[in-house]
């Protein structure tokens, strides 16, 4: 039983780290923000596993939800600008 639980924990955490890595390494703004929201929701899931349901709820709603919504608006603007500017959008992104 403990080994099974440990395996479960390891999978949870490995996914978390992989999500974070993918977020950090993604150069495209909208994709990065989407991955960030996924990361936040996964983090909330891990916190629920650690018996912190209050905080999981808050992270999902405030951290991933509101933070993600705010970032998404910015990412959409950045993407629009890149399209409008053609190639030179990356210098001020």
């Amino acid at each position: 039983m403990p080994t099974l639980l440990l395996l479960f924990d390891l999978v949870l955490l490995a996914t978390l780290i992989v999500l974070a890595l993918a977020t950090v390494l993604s150069p495209e703004p909208r994709r990065a923000v989407m991955l960030f929201i996924a990361f936040g929701l996964w983090l909330a899931l891990v916190w629920a596993r650690l018996r912190a349901p209050d905080i999981a709820l808050a992270e999902a709603a405030i951290g991933a939800g509101m933070g993600g919504a705010l970032m998404l608006a910015a990412a959409r603007r950045a993407a629009h600008r890149d399209e409008a500017a053609g190639g030179d959008g990356d210098k001020r992104a």
């Binding site: 349901p53 209050d54 808050a58 709603a61 405030i62 939800g65 509101m66 919504a69």
Partner: peptide
């Protein structure tokens, strides 16, 4: 589980 911050975040959503 719940409280002012979670509830406020829902209103914000």
């Amino acid at each position: 589980p719940g409280g002012a911050f979670q509830a406020g975040a829902l209103l914000g959503a």
